[in-house]
Design a protein around this nucleic acid. Structure first.
Length: 437
RNA sequence: CGGGGCGUAGCGCAGCCUGGUAGCGCGCCUGGUUUGGGUCCAGGAGGUCGGAGGUUCGAAUCCUCUCGCCCCGACCA
């Protein structure tokens, strides 16, 4: 992507309306645009990150035979009356009438509707387990929206649902999702701690929250220090993790585990619940078991706040200069900075490099603007792409380019060819031929 | 909803107390200059001072009402 053709409204001043760092940086880098309180547009740069989060989630879900569907944002209030949740959710639910005076609402979650869909389709235990998910906009009319997309009213959520025949199977499914969640987050380059959690209005008795550790987190976590030594990309790490103590403040029980225990602030980016036959029963979604008897399948739901995850990633990965994206979620992998583009040689060389890297399946943001070096460096640091590739008349004179690693600040002076090798080596895991620019 | 703060150019702000018809920095446009950490110079465009009403010869400024945004609390992916 050439910067000269891109939509990237970076602001030099910090927007004063934002208090926490992720909100500031998202506004300042032109990832999002505030529309009304708690409702945001996702601009091209932010949308790229959002889409990447989505694709990690999709992949993880499909791996455990959880299939994507898409339910509407608008639901009939009637359905919510049937499950009794119309009043439970109360003012959080945005309600309205259509022209025929039919009561509608903007869905805050979808247990009710997905159970109806399940009911219409599944009549036999032979078709269990059944696992469905969607990535869809939700609306909860929060009393006080705050912190940008972190606690917005409209938000993008992955919501998954499972139906099983027996309690044992339902519980197995629950743990399967839990492990899958840990893996999905690890693949995104994020350290997430699953903690025991209270269940809230969705109901149920088995529940975990997934937290990214960050100082600005709204929750307090307690966890076994051993957790910090786990490499979650290792095959057996997830099993080890399940043996370690971790609890959210409300569920924390100091007497139930050995000392010592770490305490940290966490941002809740996922939440899973097992609630049994709560919805299948009330909506009469029974299936035949192998005795031909009608039984109510047991359900769980599994949420990930997709937009919040983007903000939380920034909370956990930034410095004074800006964002420090993990490569997996970075809107682009490489920021190519051409210094002195009026020099034809610089322009030619950087354009050639841009094309070469793009053809290799790397996502390159090519700063081809005619601005002063400092201005370009600062903007690139702010946006926080993992690798900066810098070339100008000075370096080209020696047939060299410079690579700066955003996270560590390390710099390497290399020949063009070595630089390409360096980058393809570092970025091999995220290289793709399926790019969208 | 209770408590607090703020709405003046795209962004960040000053002016308001003590009324006299709007200013600064950045950004933007033009020309030149500079090119490895927000270059420098010159010229230029851009604002019904959130909105309505009132006081006054005169309101960004004083008064009343209203809308919006942010922060703290109750609530939460």
């Amino acid at each position: 992507m050439k910067l000269s053709n891109y939509f990237l409204p970076v602001q030099r001043n910090k927007p004063q309306e934002a208090q926490i760092i992720s909100h500031q940086l998202m506004l300042q880098t032109g990832m999002i645009n505030a529309e009304v309180s708690g409702i945001y547009s996702w601009l091209p740069l932010g949308l790229r990150v959002l889409k990447k989060v989505e694709s990690f989630i999709r992949q993880g879900m499909e791996e455990i035979q959880c299939h994507e569907l898409l339910m509407p944002t608008v639901q009939p209030a009637e359905l919510w009356h049937k499950t009794g949740r119309y009043n439970v959710y109360g003012q959080e639910t945005l309600r309205f009438l259509d022209r025929h005076n039919r009561e509608l609402l903007y869905g805050p979650t979808n247990e009710d509707m997905v159970t109806e869909i399940f009911k219409r389709a599944i009549k036999s235990y032979k078709h269990l387990p059944c696992r469905l998910f969607q990535i869809q906009w939700k609306f909860r009319d929060e009393i006080r929206p705050r912190f940008g997309v972190m606690r917005g009213r409209e938000f993008l959520m992955k919501d998954g649902y499972s139906f099983d025949l027996t309690p044992q199977q339902a519980e197995e499914t629950y743990w399967l999702f839990l492990k899958t969640y840990v893996r999905i987050f690890a693949q995104m380059g994020l350290k997430v701690i699953p903690v025991k959690a209270p269940t809230g209005p969705i109901g149920g008795d088995l529940s975990h929250e997934f937290h990214i550790v960050a100082d600005t987190g709204e929750s307090t976590l307690y966890y076994d220090p051993e957790y910090d030594n786990l490499d979650l990309n290792q095959a057996d790490a997830v099993d080890k993790l399940l043996d370690l103590y971790a609890a959210e403040e409300e569920m924390h029980d100091p007497s139930s585990h050995a000392e010592p225990v770490n305490q940290a602030r966490g941002i809740e980016v996922g939440h899973i619940f097992h609630f049994g036959d709560k919805y299948t029963k009330v909506l009469d979604a029974a299936v035949a078991n192998n005795d031909g008897k009608q039984v109510f399948p047991l359900g769980s739901s599994y949420g990930i706040g997709v937009g919040r995850l983007v903000a939380a990633t920034i909370e956990a990965n930034h410095d004074e200069s800006g964002i420090k994206w993990p490569v997996q979620l970075a809107p682009f992998h490489i920021g190519l900075i051409a210094l002195g583009v009026k020099d034809q040689n610089v322009l030619d060389q950087s354009t050639a490099l841009y094309q070469k890297l793009s053809n290799l399946g790397l996502e390159v943001l090519f700063d081809d603007s005619d601005e002063s070096p400092g201005s370009k460096f600062n903007r690139m640091d702010l946006i926080g792409l993992p690798y900066q590739l810098i070339l100008g008349p000075k370096s080209l004179k020696n047939d060299e380019v410079e690579i700066k690693e955003r996270v560590t600040g390390d710099r390497h002076t290399l020949s063009t060819e070595s630089a390409i090798l360096f980058l393809t080596d570092k970025l091999r895991a995220v290289m793709t031929t399926d790019r969208y620019d």
